[in-house]
Nucleic acid binder design. Structure first.
Length: 560
RNA sequence: UGGGGAUUGGUGUAACGGUAGCACAACUGACUCUGGAUCAGUUUGUCUAGGUUCGAAUCCUAGAUCCCCAGCCA
Protein backbone atom coordinates (compact mmCIF):
# COMPACT_ATOMS: atom_id res chain seq x y z
CA UNK A 1 0.00 0.00 0.00
CA UNK A 2 1.20 3.42 -0.85
CA UNK A 3 -1.50 5.53 0.68
CA UNK A 4 -0.73 9.00 1.84
CA UNK A 5 -0.11 9.14 5.57
CA UNK A 6 -2.97 10.66 7.51
CA UNK A 7 -2.04 13.59 9.74
CA UNK A 8 -0.89 12.44 13.16
CA UNK A 9 -3.81 14.25 14.76
CA UNK A 10 -6.88 12.52 13.45
CA UNK A 11 -10.26 14.18 13.55
CA UNK A 12 -13.05 12.08 15.03
CA UNK A 13 -14.16 10.73 11.67
CA UNK A 14 -10.68 9.72 10.55
CA UNK A 15 -10.28 8.10 13.94
CA UNK A 16 -13.33 5.93 13.29
CA UNK A 17 -12.12 5.10 9.80
CA UNK A 18 -8.65 4.28 11.07
CA UNK A 19 -10.12 1.92 13.66
CA UNK A 20 -12.18 0.19 10.96
CA UNK A 21 -9.19 -0.07 8.67
CA UNK A 22 -7.26 -1.67 11.53
CA UNK A 23 -9.81 -4.49 11.55
CA UNK A 24 -9.27 -5.05 7.86
CA UNK A 25 -12.27 -3.19 6.48
CA UNK A 26 -12.05 -1.39 3.15
CA UNK A 27 -12.77 2.33 2.76
CA UNK A 28 -15.30 3.56 0.23
CA UNK A 29 -16.70 7.06 0.62
CA UNK A 30 -18.84 9.21 -1.60
CA UNK A 31 -19.49 12.84 -2.38
CA UNK A 32 -23.21 13.13 -3.18
CA UNK A 33 -24.13 16.57 -4.55
CA UNK A 34 -27.62 17.35 -5.75
CA UNK A 35 -27.29 19.02 -9.17
CA UNK A 36 -29.55 21.91 -8.29
CA UNK A 37 -26.86 24.58 -8.10
CA UNK A 38 -23.14 25.05 -8.20
CA UNK A 39 -20.68 23.94 -5.56
CA UNK A 40 -19.62 26.36 -2.84
CA UNK A 41 -16.87 26.43 -0.27
CA UNK A 42 -19.02 24.48 2.18
CA UNK A 43 -19.01 21.64 -0.33
CA UNK A 44 -15.26 22.00 -0.58
CA UNK A 45 -15.02 21.02 3.07
CA UNK A 46 -17.04 17.87 2.43
CA UNK A 47 -15.11 17.13 -0.76
CA UNK A 48 -11.77 17.38 1.02
CA UNK A 49 -13.10 15.05 3.70
CA UNK A 50 -14.66 12.45 1.40
CA UNK A 51 -11.89 12.36 -1.15
CA UNK A 52 -9.19 12.99 1.43
CA UNK A 53 -10.14 10.03 3.59
CA UNK A 54 -10.35 7.73 0.58
CA UNK A 55 -6.88 8.78 -0.51
CA UNK A 56 -5.31 8.63 2.93
CA UNK A 57 -6.64 5.21 3.74
CA UNK A 58 -6.11 3.59 0.38
CA UNK A 59 -9.80 3.49 -0.49
CA UNK A 60 -11.86 5.21 -3.14
CA UNK A 61 -14.39 7.98 -3.30
CA UNK A 62 -17.44 7.95 -5.56
CA UNK A 63 -18.96 10.99 -7.14
CA UNK A 64 -22.69 10.41 -6.96
CA UNK A 65 -25.28 12.82 -8.18
CA UNK A 66 -28.23 12.74 -5.84
CA UNK A 67 -30.65 13.43 -8.64
CA UNK A 68 -34.02 12.51 -7.19
CA UNK A 69 -35.85 15.80 -7.70
CA UNK A 70 -36.24 16.67 -11.39
CA UNK A 71 -38.05 19.89 -10.47
CA UNK A 72 -34.83 21.50 -9.36
CA UNK A 73 -32.07 19.69 -11.14
CA UNK A 74 -30.38 20.59 -14.39
CA UNK A 75 -27.73 19.13 -16.66
CA UNK A 76 -25.68 22.34 -16.55
CA UNK A 77 -25.28 21.87 -12.83
CA UNK A 78 -24.08 18.31 -13.33
CA UNK A 79 -21.46 19.56 -15.78
CA UNK A 80 -20.55 22.51 -13.59
CA UNK A 81 -20.07 20.37 -10.51
CA UNK A 82 -17.66 18.07 -12.34
CA UNK A 83 -15.76 21.04 -13.69
CA UNK A 84 -15.42 22.57 -10.23
CA UNK A 85 -14.38 19.26 -8.70
CA UNK A 86 -11.58 18.84 -11.22
CA UNK A 87 -10.48 22.41 -10.71
CA UNK A 88 -10.25 21.78 -6.99
CA UNK A 89 -7.94 18.91 -7.81
CA UNK A 90 -10.04 15.82 -7.17
CA UNK A 91 -10.48 12.82 -9.39
CA UNK A 92 -13.17 10.16 -9.08
CA UNK A 93 -11.80 8.03 -11.89
CA UNK A 94 -14.46 5.64 -13.19
CA UNK A 95 -16.61 6.13 -10.16
CA UNK A 96 -19.27 8.50 -11.38
CA UNK A 97 -22.74 7.43 -10.33
CA UNK A 98 -26.28 8.75 -10.32
CA UNK A 99 -29.02 7.92 -7.88
CA UNK A 100 -31.33 7.97 -10.89
CA UNK A 101 -29.52 4.91 -12.23
CA UNK A 102 -30.89 2.99 -9.23
CA UNK A 103 -34.54 3.85 -9.80
CA UNK A 104 -35.40 0.30 -10.90
CA UNK A 105 -33.74 -1.26 -7.89
CA UNK A 106 -35.32 1.28 -5.57
CA UNK A 107 -38.73 0.52 -7.05
CA UNK A 108 -38.25 -3.20 -6.57
CA UNK A 109 -37.11 -2.70 -3.00
CA UNK A 110 -40.12 -0.53 -2.32
CA UNK A 111 -42.33 -3.41 -3.47
CA UNK A 112 -40.42 -5.65 -1.12
CA UNK A 113 -41.24 -3.38 1.79
CA UNK A 114 -44.89 -3.23 0.79
CA UNK A 115 -45.03 -7.02 0.66
CA UNK A 116 -43.52 -7.30 4.10
CA UNK A 117 -46.05 -4.83 5.45
CA UNK A 118 -43.47 -2.11 6.00
CA UNK A 119 -44.80 0.37 3.46
CA UNK A 120 -48.15 1.45 2.10
CA UNK A 121 -49.71 3.73 -0.43
CA UNK A 122 -51.32 6.75 1.22
CA UNK A 123 -54.01 8.88 -0.43
CA UNK A 124 -53.63 11.86 1.88
CA UNK A 125 -52.81 15.22 0.38
CA UNK A 126 -49.74 17.11 1.52
CA UNK A 127 -51.89 19.33 3.71
CA UNK A 128 -53.75 16.41 5.25
CA UNK A 129 -50.52 14.65 5.94
CA UNK A 130 -49.13 17.74 7.65
CA UNK A 131 -52.20 18.00 9.82
CA UNK A 132 -51.76 14.44 10.98
CA UNK A 133 -48.05 14.55 11.54
CA UNK A 134 -48.46 15.87 15.07
CA UNK A 135 -46.06 18.37 16.57
CA UNK A 136 -42.69 18.32 18.25
CA UNK A 137 -44.40 17.44 21.49
CA UNK A 138 -47.59 15.68 20.36
CA UNK A 139 -47.73 12.36 18.52
CA UNK A 140 -49.16 12.15 15.01
CA UNK A 141 -52.31 10.45 13.81
CA UNK A 142 -52.13 7.34 11.66
CA UNK A 143 -53.21 7.57 8.06
CA UNK A 144 -56.60 5.94 7.28
CA UNK A 145 -54.76 4.03 4.53
CA UNK A 146 -52.05 2.73 6.80
CA UNK A 147 -53.54 -0.71 7.09
CA UNK A 148 -54.99 -1.15 3.65
CA UNK A 149 -54.39 -4.60 2.17
CA UNK A 150 -50.89 -5.26 0.85
CA UNK A 151 -52.28 -6.23 -2.55
CA UNK A 152 -54.10 -2.93 -2.78
CA UNK A 153 -50.95 -0.97 -2.01
CA UNK A 154 -49.00 -3.02 -4.52
CA UNK A 155 -51.59 -2.31 -7.17
CA UNK A 156 -51.85 1.37 -6.37
CA UNK A 157 -48.07 1.73 -6.31
CA UNK A 158 -47.82 0.18 -9.75
CA UNK A 159 -50.51 2.50 -11.05
CA UNK A 160 -48.66 5.45 -9.53
CA UNK A 161 -45.69 4.40 -11.57
CA UNK A 162 -47.79 4.02 -14.70
CA UNK A 163 -48.92 7.60 -14.41
CA UNK A 164 -52.59 7.01 -13.58
CA UNK A 165 -52.66 9.71 -10.89
CA UNK A 166 -51.88 13.41 -10.89
CA UNK A 167 -49.03 15.00 -8.97
CA UNK A 168 -49.47 14.82 -5.23
CA UNK A 169 -52.48 12.49 -5.37
CA UNK A 170 -50.79 9.64 -3.52
CA UNK A 171 -47.51 8.74 -1.90
CA UNK A 172 -45.75 5.61 -0.81
CA UNK A 173 -44.99 5.76 2.89
CA UNK A 174 -42.90 3.66 5.20
CA UNK A 175 -44.92 2.17 8.04
CA UNK A 176 -42.93 2.95 11.15
CA UNK A 177 -44.35 4.87 14.11
CA UNK A 178 -46.60 7.92 14.07
CA UNK A 179 -45.88 8.49 17.74
CA UNK A 180 -42.12 8.53 17.43
CA UNK A 181 -40.46 11.52 19.06
CA UNK A 182 -38.26 11.60 15.94
CA UNK A 183 -40.51 13.12 13.30
CA UNK A 184 -38.54 11.43 10.55
CA UNK A 185 -39.92 8.12 11.72
CA UNK A 186 -43.60 9.16 11.53
CA UNK A 187 -44.31 7.20 8.38
CA UNK A 188 -42.00 9.14 6.08
CA UNK A 189 -42.76 9.48 2.39
CA UNK A 190 -40.69 7.24 0.12
CA UNK A 191 -42.19 8.15 -3.24
CA UNK A 192 -44.08 11.11 -4.56
CA UNK A 193 -45.79 11.58 -7.90
CA UNK A 194 -44.02 14.11 -10.08
CA UNK A 195 -44.83 14.32 -13.75
CA UNK A 196 -41.56 16.00 -14.59
CA UNK A 197 -38.79 15.38 -17.07
CA UNK A 198 -35.59 14.24 -15.43
CA UNK A 199 -32.23 15.39 -16.87
CA UNK A 200 -31.10 11.77 -17.16
CA UNK A 201 -34.12 9.49 -17.15
CA UNK A 202 -36.29 11.80 -19.21
CA UNK A 203 -39.95 10.84 -18.93
CA UNK A 204 -39.36 7.24 -17.94
CA UNK A 205 -40.62 7.93 -14.44
CA UNK A 206 -43.36 9.99 -12.91
CA UNK A 207 -42.74 8.85 -9.36
CA UNK A 208 -39.50 9.82 -7.68
CA UNK A 209 -37.90 8.56 -4.48
CA UNK A 210 -37.34 10.99 -1.64
CA UNK A 211 -33.91 11.65 -0.21
CA UNK A 212 -34.41 9.33 2.72
CA UNK A 213 -35.46 6.43 0.57
CA UNK A 214 -32.82 6.99 -2.10
CA UNK A 215 -29.73 7.97 -0.24
CA UNK A 216 -28.97 5.09 2.08
CA UNK A 217 -29.96 2.51 -0.53
CA UNK A 218 -27.68 4.16 -3.08
CA UNK A 219 -24.87 4.06 -0.53
CA UNK A 220 -25.57 0.40 0.03
CA UNK A 221 -25.65 -0.47 -3.67
CA UNK A 222 -22.25 1.16 -4.15
CA UNK A 223 -20.74 -0.58 -1.17
CA UNK A 224 -20.06 2.65 0.64
CA UNK A 225 -18.46 1.99 4.02
CA UNK A 226 -18.55 5.46 5.55
CA UNK A 227 -21.33 7.83 4.55
CA UNK A 228 -20.30 11.26 5.72
CA UNK A 229 -22.82 14.06 5.89
CA UNK A 230 -23.64 17.19 7.81
CA UNK A 231 -25.26 17.53 11.23
CA UNK A 232 -28.79 18.19 10.06
CA UNK A 233 -29.00 14.56 8.97
CA UNK A 234 -28.34 13.23 12.43
CA UNK A 235 -32.07 12.85 12.98
CA UNK A 236 -32.30 10.89 9.76
CA UNK A 237 -29.78 8.27 10.77
CA UNK A 238 -32.37 6.06 12.52
CA UNK A 239 -34.37 6.07 9.30
CA UNK A 240 -31.26 5.46 7.20
CA UNK A 241 -30.52 2.43 9.35
CA UNK A 242 -34.14 1.26 9.46
CA UNK A 243 -34.51 0.98 5.68
CA UNK A 244 -31.26 -0.93 5.33
CA UNK A 245 -32.19 -3.26 8.13
CA UNK A 246 -35.61 -4.01 6.65
CA UNK A 247 -33.97 -4.78 3.34
CA UNK A 248 -31.20 -6.85 4.88
CA UNK A 249 -28.57 -5.34 2.64
CA UNK A 250 -25.08 -3.92 3.14
CA UNK A 251 -25.10 -1.25 5.84
CA UNK A 252 -22.78 1.71 5.46
CA UNK A 253 -22.16 3.79 8.55
CA UNK A 254 -23.46 7.35 8.45
CA UNK A 255 -21.35 9.85 10.37
CA UNK A 256 -22.24 13.50 10.70
CA UNK A 257 -20.01 16.54 10.99
CA UNK A 258 -20.65 20.28 11.27
CA UNK A 259 -21.10 22.22 8.08
CA UNK A 260 -18.88 25.16 7.29
CA UNK A 261 -20.01 28.66 8.18
CA UNK A 262 -18.00 31.74 7.35
CA UNK A 263 -18.53 35.17 8.80
CA UNK A 264 -20.18 37.70 6.49
CA UNK A 265 -21.02 35.12 3.86
CA UNK A 266 -23.73 32.57 3.22
CA UNK A 267 -23.19 28.98 2.21
CA UNK A 268 -26.70 27.87 1.44
CA UNK A 269 -27.38 26.91 -2.14
CA UNK A 270 -30.93 28.16 -1.94
CA UNK A 271 -29.87 31.61 -0.75
CA UNK A 272 -27.05 31.83 -3.24
CA UNK A 273 -29.64 31.14 -5.93
CA UNK A 274 -31.69 34.01 -4.52
CA UNK A 275 -28.71 36.33 -4.93
CA UNK A 276 -28.23 35.22 -8.51
CA UNK A 277 -31.88 35.39 -9.51
CA UNK A 278 -32.40 38.69 -7.73
CA UNK A 279 -29.52 40.23 -9.66
CA UNK A 280 -27.63 41.10 -6.51
CA UNK A 281 -24.48 39.62 -8.01
CA UNK A 282 -23.19 39.10 -11.52
CA UNK A 283 -24.05 35.43 -11.41
CA UNK A 284 -22.98 32.15 -9.82
CA UNK A 285 -19.41 33.06 -10.66
CA UNK A 286 -19.45 36.57 -9.25
CA UNK A 287 -16.08 37.11 -7.53
CA UNK A 288 -17.90 37.88 -4.28
CA UNK A 289 -19.73 34.57 -4.27
CA UNK A 290 -18.44 31.76 -2.04
CA UNK A 291 -19.07 29.35 -4.90
CA UNK A 292 -16.06 27.56 -6.31
CA UNK A 293 -16.56 29.32 -9.63
CA UNK A 294 -16.85 32.64 -7.81
CA UNK A 295 -13.65 31.99 -5.91
CA UNK A 296 -11.99 30.92 -9.13
CA UNK A 297 -13.00 34.13 -10.89
CA UNK A 298 -11.88 36.09 -7.84
CA UNK A 299 -8.41 34.59 -8.33
CA UNK A 300 -8.36 32.20 -5.41
CA UNK A 301 -6.03 29.24 -6.15
CA UNK A 302 -7.60 25.82 -5.54
CA UNK A 303 -4.67 24.84 -3.33
CA UNK A 304 -5.60 27.66 -0.98
CA UNK A 305 -9.13 26.30 -0.61
CA UNK A 306 -7.84 22.84 0.17
CA UNK A 307 -5.40 24.27 2.69
CA UNK A 308 -8.16 26.33 4.26
CA UNK A 309 -10.37 23.26 4.62
CA UNK A 310 -7.57 21.36 6.27
CA UNK A 311 -7.07 24.22 8.70
CA UNK A 312 -10.72 24.40 9.62
CA UNK A 313 -10.79 20.75 10.61
CA UNK A 314 -13.69 18.39 11.19
CA UNK A 315 -15.79 18.47 14.34
CA UNK A 316 -19.42 18.48 15.41
CA UNK A 317 -19.16 22.02 16.71
CA UNK A 318 -21.27 24.57 14.93
CA UNK A 319 -18.69 27.25 14.31
CA UNK A 320 -18.47 30.39 12.22
CA UNK A 321 -15.04 30.77 10.72
CA UNK A 322 -13.32 34.10 10.29
CA UNK A 323 -12.79 34.71 6.55
CA UNK A 324 -9.22 35.83 7.21
CA UNK A 325 -8.38 32.15 7.56
CA UNK A 326 -9.27 31.72 3.89
CA UNK A 327 -7.65 35.00 2.93
CA UNK A 328 -4.48 33.97 4.62
CA UNK A 329 -4.37 30.65 2.83
CA UNK A 330 -4.84 32.57 -0.41
CA UNK A 331 -2.01 34.97 0.42
CA UNK A 332 0.30 32.16 1.42
CA UNK A 333 -0.29 30.41 -1.89
CA UNK A 334 -0.14 33.51 -4.06
CA UNK A 335 2.92 34.91 -2.31
CA UNK A 336 4.69 31.77 -3.41
CA UNK A 337 3.36 31.68 -6.95
CA UNK A 338 2.09 35.03 -8.22
CA UNK A 339 4.40 37.09 -10.44
CA UNK A 340 4.87 40.68 -9.26
CA UNK A 341 3.96 43.62 -11.43
CA UNK A 342 3.35 47.31 -10.87
CA UNK A 343 -0.09 48.81 -11.17
CA UNK A 344 -1.46 52.09 -9.90
CA UNK A 345 -5.08 52.02 -8.80
CA UNK A 346 -5.53 55.73 -8.08
CA UNK A 347 -3.00 57.54 -10.29
CA UNK A 348 -1.26 60.79 -9.46
CA UNK A 349 1.04 62.27 -12.11
CA UNK A 350 4.70 62.81 -11.37
CA UNK A 351 7.02 64.79 -13.64
CA UNK A 352 10.74 64.16 -13.29
CA UNK A 353 12.05 67.61 -14.09
CA UNK A 354 15.64 66.63 -14.76
CA UNK A 355 14.77 63.65 -16.95
CA UNK A 356 14.88 64.31 -20.72
CA UNK A 357 11.53 64.83 -22.48
CA UNK A 358 11.60 62.06 -25.03
CA UNK A 359 13.95 59.59 -23.42
CA UNK A 360 12.95 56.13 -22.29
CA UNK A 361 15.07 53.97 -20.05
CA UNK A 362 14.40 50.38 -19.15
CA UNK A 363 15.01 48.43 -15.97
CA UNK A 364 15.11 44.78 -15.11
CA UNK A 365 12.54 44.04 -12.44
CA UNK A 366 12.42 40.85 -10.40
CA UNK A 367 9.30 38.82 -11.14
CA UNK A 368 9.09 37.08 -7.80
CA UNK A 369 11.51 37.58 -4.92
CA UNK A 370 10.16 34.34 -3.42
CA UNK A 371 11.08 32.37 -6.51
CA UNK A 372 14.32 33.19 -8.32
CA UNK A 373 13.36 30.87 -11.17
CA UNK A 374 10.56 33.27 -12.09
CA UNK A 375 13.19 35.50 -13.69
CA UNK A 376 12.96 39.16 -14.54
CA UNK A 377 11.09 41.43 -16.90
CA UNK A 378 11.72 44.82 -18.45
CA UNK A 379 9.88 47.94 -17.32
CA UNK A 380 10.13 51.28 -19.12
CA UNK A 381 10.79 54.57 -17.36
CA UNK A 382 10.23 58.07 -18.70
CA UNK A 383 9.84 61.69 -17.63
CA UNK A 384 6.16 61.39 -16.72
CA UNK A 385 5.01 58.70 -14.33
CA UNK A 386 2.00 57.60 -12.36
CA UNK A 387 2.25 56.87 -8.68
CA UNK A 388 -0.41 55.98 -6.14
CA UNK A 389 -2.22 59.07 -4.89
CA UNK A 390 -2.07 57.82 -1.32
CA UNK A 391 1.69 57.55 -1.55
CA UNK A 392 1.93 61.34 -1.33
CA UNK A 393 1.08 63.52 1.61
CA UNK A 394 1.68 67.23 1.77
CA UNK A 395 1.93 67.50 5.55
CA UNK A 396 3.37 64.14 6.31
CA UNK A 397 4.11 62.78 9.76
CA UNK A 398 7.61 61.43 10.38
CA UNK A 399 6.46 57.85 10.07
CA UNK A 400 5.06 58.40 6.59
CA UNK A 401 7.83 56.75 4.63
CA UNK A 402 6.59 57.87 1.25
CA UNK A 403 6.61 61.02 -0.84
CA UNK A 404 6.20 64.46 0.65
CA UNK A 405 7.67 67.82 -0.25
CA UNK A 406 11.44 67.66 0.10
CA UNK A 407 11.52 63.94 0.81
CA UNK A 408 13.37 61.32 -1.15
CA UNK A 409 12.03 57.84 -1.92
CA UNK A 410 12.96 54.99 -4.18
CA UNK A 411 10.88 54.14 -7.22
CA UNK A 412 10.94 50.39 -7.21
CA UNK A 413 13.70 48.91 -9.39
CA UNK A 414 14.44 52.38 -10.82
CA UNK A 415 15.76 55.57 -9.23
CA UNK A 416 15.68 57.65 -6.08
CA UNK A 417 13.47 60.68 -6.59
CA UNK A 418 12.89 63.78 -4.48
CA UNK A 419 9.71 65.82 -4.43
CA UNK A 420 10.47 69.43 -5.28
CA UNK A 421 7.06 70.83 -6.09
CA UNK A 422 3.31 70.33 -5.90
CA UNK A 423 0.75 71.54 -8.46
CA UNK A 424 -2.85 72.05 -7.42
CA UNK A 425 -6.12 72.94 -9.05
CA UNK A 426 -8.38 75.83 -8.10
CA UNK A 427 -9.97 73.91 -5.24
CA UNK A 428 -6.65 72.91 -3.79
CA UNK A 429 -6.50 69.30 -4.96
CA UNK A 430 -3.07 67.98 -5.82
CA UNK A 431 -2.92 67.46 -9.58
CA UNK A 432 0.76 66.80 -10.19
CA UNK A 433 4.04 66.31 -8.40
CA UNK A 434 7.34 67.79 -9.57
CA UNK A 435 10.34 65.65 -8.72
CA UNK A 436 14.02 65.28 -9.54
CA UNK A 437 15.85 62.00 -9.84
CA UNK A 438 19.39 61.06 -8.96
CA UNK A 439 21.01 59.41 -12.00
CA UNK A 440 23.58 57.78 -9.73
CA UNK A 441 20.87 55.67 -8.11
CA UNK A 442 20.00 53.80 -11.28
CA UNK A 443 18.69 50.34 -10.44
CA UNK A 444 17.54 51.47 -7.02
CA UNK A 445 20.67 51.81 -4.95
CA UNK A 446 22.80 54.79 -4.14
CA UNK A 447 26.56 54.40 -4.56
CA UNK A 448 27.12 56.75 -1.63
CA UNK A 449 25.33 54.35 0.66
CA UNK A 450 22.45 56.78 1.18
CA UNK A 451 19.34 55.04 2.43
CA UNK A 452 15.72 55.81 1.80
CA UNK A 453 12.98 54.41 3.95
CA UNK A 454 10.29 54.15 1.33
CA UNK A 455 9.92 52.36 -1.98
CA UNK A 456 6.99 53.21 -4.23
CA UNK A 457 5.46 51.41 -7.16
CA UNK A 458 5.02 53.44 -10.34
CA UNK A 459 4.16 53.17 -14.02
CA UNK A 460 5.58 55.17 -16.91
CA UNK A 461 2.72 57.36 -18.13
CA UNK A 462 3.63 57.04 -21.79
CA UNK A 463 3.80 53.24 -21.62
CA UNK A 464 0.98 52.58 -19.16
CA UNK A 465 -1.97 50.40 -20.03
CA UNK A 466 -5.43 51.44 -18.92
CA UNK A 467 -7.24 49.03 -16.71
CA UNK A 468 -10.40 48.63 -14.71
CA UNK A 469 -9.92 47.31 -11.23
CA UNK A 470 -12.72 45.77 -9.16
CA UNK A 471 -12.25 45.91 -5.44
CA UNK A 472 -14.20 43.49 -3.29
CA UNK A 473 -15.44 43.39 0.25
CA UNK A 474 -17.59 40.75 1.94
CA UNK A 475 -21.09 40.43 0.55
CA UNK A 476 -22.73 40.95 3.93
CA UNK A 477 -22.32 43.47 6.69
CA UNK A 478 -23.14 41.14 9.56
CA UNK A 479 -20.99 38.28 10.77
CA UNK A 480 -24.12 36.19 10.56
CA UNK A 481 -26.12 37.35 7.54
CA UNK A 482 -29.13 35.38 8.76
CA UNK A 483 -29.34 37.61 11.81
CA UNK A 484 -32.39 39.69 10.90
CA UNK A 485 -35.36 41.29 12.61
CA UNK A 486 -38.63 39.38 12.47
CA UNK A 487 -40.17 39.73 9.05
CA UNK A 488 -36.93 40.69 7.33
CA UNK A 489 -34.88 38.46 5.11
CA UNK A 490 -31.13 38.04 4.82
CA UNK A 491 -30.97 40.44 1.86
CA UNK A 492 -31.23 43.39 4.24
CA UNK A 493 -27.73 42.55 5.39
CA UNK A 494 -26.23 42.81 1.92
CA UNK A 495 -23.17 45.05 1.87
CA UNK A 496 -23.89 47.87 -0.63
CA UNK A 497 -20.16 48.42 -1.00
CA UNK A 498 -19.18 44.84 -1.66
CA UNK A 499 -17.93 45.81 -5.10
CA UNK A 500 -16.13 49.04 -5.96
CA UNK A 501 -15.17 49.59 -9.57
CA UNK A 502 -12.17 51.76 -10.34
CA UNK A 503 -12.10 52.63 -14.00
CA UNK A 504 -8.89 54.61 -14.37
CA UNK A 505 -6.16 52.35 -13.14
CA UNK A 506 -2.76 52.29 -14.88
CA UNK A 507 -0.67 49.18 -15.18
CA UNK A 508 2.74 48.36 -16.57
CA UNK A 509 2.99 47.37 -20.25
CA UNK A 510 4.19 43.83 -19.55
CA UNK A 511 0.56 43.04 -18.70
CA UNK A 512 -0.45 43.50 -22.33
CA UNK A 513 -0.77 39.79 -22.98
CA UNK A 514 -2.52 38.90 -19.73
CA UNK A 515 -5.38 36.44 -20.11
CA UNK A 516 -8.48 35.87 -18.00
CA UNK A 517 -7.55 33.80 -14.97
CA UNK A 518 -3.95 35.04 -14.82
CA UNK A 519 -2.97 35.98 -11.29
CA UNK A 520 -0.54 38.71 -10.26
CA UNK A 521 0.64 40.56 -7.25
CA UNK A 522 0.45 44.31 -7.77
CA UNK A 523 3.36 45.21 -5.59
CA UNK A 524 2.46 46.88 -2.32
CA UNK A 525 -1.26 46.62 -3.08
CA UNK A 526 -2.51 43.10 -3.32
CA UNK A 527 -3.26 40.11 -5.48
CA UNK A 528 -5.25 40.53 -8.66
CA UNK A 529 -6.71 38.20 -11.24
CA UNK A 530 -7.68 39.03 -14.80
CA UNK A 531 -11.46 38.90 -15.16
CA UNK A 532 -13.17 37.24 -18.15
CA UNK A 533 -14.65 40.67 -18.93
CA UNK A 534 -11.19 41.83 -20.00
CA UNK A 535 -10.68 42.61 -23.69
CA UNK A 536 -7.45 43.13 -25.63
CA UNK A 537 -8.20 46.86 -25.46
CA UNK A 538 -9.05 47.08 -21.82
CA UNK A 539 -7.83 44.90 -19.00
CA UNK A 540 -10.08 44.15 -16.05
CA UNK A 541 -8.64 42.97 -12.75
CA UNK A 542 -10.39 41.51 -9.73
CA UNK A 543 -8.73 42.09 -6.42
CA UNK A 544 -8.34 38.66 -4.91
CA UNK A 545 -6.92 39.88 -1.62
CA UNK A 546 -4.97 42.80 -0.26
CA UNK A 547 -1.50 42.46 1.11
CA UNK A 548 -1.40 42.53 4.88
CA UNK A 549 -2.00 46.11 5.75
CA UNK A 550 0.33 47.11 8.51
CA UNK A 551 1.25 50.18 6.45
CA UNK A 552 -2.03 51.91 7.06
CA UNK A 553 -1.72 51.41 10.79
CA UNK A 554 1.81 52.75 10.87
CA UNK A 555 0.68 55.91 9.11
CA UNK A 556 -2.29 56.31 11.38
CA UNK A 557 -0.06 55.88 14.38
CA UNK A 558 2.33 58.47 13.00
CA UNK A 559 -0.50 60.92 12.55
CA UNK A 560 -1.99 60.29 15.96
C1' U B 1 -42.19 22.66 27.27
C1' G B 2 -40.69 16.08 22.58
C1' G B 3 -36.31 14.19 20.12
C1' G B 4 -31.28 14.72 18.34
C1' G B 5 -26.47 17.27 18.76
C1' A B 6 -22.88 20.72 20.73
C1' U B 7 -19.82 24.09 24.30
C1' U B 8 -11.38 24.77 25.12
C1' G B 9 -7.95 32.25 23.93
C1' G B 10 -10.47 37.10 19.17
C1' U B 11 -11.24 32.78 15.32
C1' G B 12 -10.56 27.53 14.00
C1' U B 13 -8.76 23.29 16.42
C1' A B 14 -5.51 19.46 19.80
C1' A B 15 -4.98 17.20 24.47
C1' C B 16 -8.66 10.05 25.12
C1' G B 17 -7.39 10.89 34.29
C1' G B 18 -0.97 13.31 34.59
C1' U B 19 3.03 20.23 31.98
C1' A B 20 -3.82 23.06 28.41
C1' G B 21 -0.59 22.53 22.69
C1' C B 22 -0.99 24.18 17.33
C1' A B 23 -2.58 27.55 13.27
C1' C B 24 -4.51 32.26 12.08
C1' A B 25 -5.31 37.09 14.19
C1' A B 26 -3.13 40.83 17.66
C1' C B 27 1.28 43.00 19.79
C1' U B 28 7.20 43.56 20.24
C1' G B 29 11.71 43.40 17.89
C1' A B 30 15.20 42.01 13.74
C1' C B 31 15.75 42.09 8.56
C1' U B 32 14.15 43.93 3.82
C1' C B 33 14.60 47.74 -3.09
C1' U B 34 6.97 45.50 -1.69
C1' G B 35 5.34 49.32 5.45
C1' G B 36 4.64 42.48 1.66
C1' A B 37 7.47 38.10 2.68
C1' U B 38 10.89 36.04 6.29
C1' C B 39 12.93 35.37 11.35
C1' A B 40 12.69 35.79 16.82
C1' G B 41 9.52 36.73 20.86
C1' U B 42 4.91 38.24 23.79
C1' U B 43 -0.35 38.34 25.15
C1' U B 44 -5.07 35.89 25.43
C1' G B 45 -8.70 29.93 26.94
C1' U B 46 -11.29 24.75 29.40
C1' C B 47 -19.88 27.50 29.81
C1' U B 48 -21.54 27.46 35.36
C1' A B 49 -22.05 25.01 40.21
C1' G B 50 -21.17 20.91 43.00
C1' G B 51 -18.84 16.01 43.45
C1' U B 52 -15.15 11.63 42.65
C1' U B 53 -9.64 11.60 42.62
C1' C B 54 -3.00 12.43 44.96
C1' G B 55 -4.38 14.78 40.28
C1' A B 56 -10.24 16.59 36.01
C1' A B 57 -10.91 20.08 29.67
C1' U B 58 -11.38 14.73 30.26
C1' C B 59 -15.29 10.87 34.99
C1' C B 60 -20.29 11.76 37.92
C1' U B 61 -24.61 15.09 39.19
C1' A B 62 -27.36 19.45 38.36
C1' G B 63 -27.89 23.74 35.49
C1' A B 64 -26.92 27.46 31.44
C1' U B 65 -26.41 28.60 26.41
C1' C B 66 -26.40 27.50 21.19
C1' C B 67 -27.73 24.49 16.73
C1' C B 68 -31.06 20.94 14.05
C1' C B 69 -36.09 18.47 13.30
C1' A B 70 -43.22 19.29 12.26
C1' G B 71 -41.14 19.36 2.85
C1' C B 72 -44.54 14.86 -1.22
C1' C B 73 -36.40 19.52 -0.56
C1' A B 74 -31.60 17.48 0.01
Amino acid sequence: MHEERPAERLDFIRQIVADDVATGKPVVTRFPPEPNGFLHIGHAKAICLDFGIAREFGGRCHLRFDDTNPLKEEQRYIDGIKEDLRWLGFDWGEHEYHASAYFDQLYAWAQTLIRSGKAYVCDLSAAEMRDRRGTLTAPGVESPHRNRPIEESLDLFERMKKGEFPDGARTLRAKIDMASPNLNLRDPVMYRILHATHPRTGDAWCIYPTYDWAHGQSDSIEGITHSLCTLEFEDHRPLYDWFLEQLGVHRPRQIEFARLNIERTIVTKRKLLTLVEGGHVRGWDDPRMPTLRGLRRRGCPPEAIVEFCAGVGITKFNSRTDPVLLENAVRAQLNRAAPRVMGVVDPLKVVIENFPEDATETFEAVNNPEDPSAGTRTVPFSRELWIEREDFMEDAPKKFFRLAPGREVRLRSAYFVTCVGVEKDASGNVTELRCTYDPATRGGDSPDGRKVKGTLHWVSARHALDAEVRLYEPLFTKANPEDVEAGEEFLVNLNPESERIVAGAKVEPSLAGARPGDRFQFERIGYFCVDPDATPERLVFNRTATLRETAKKAVEAGQG
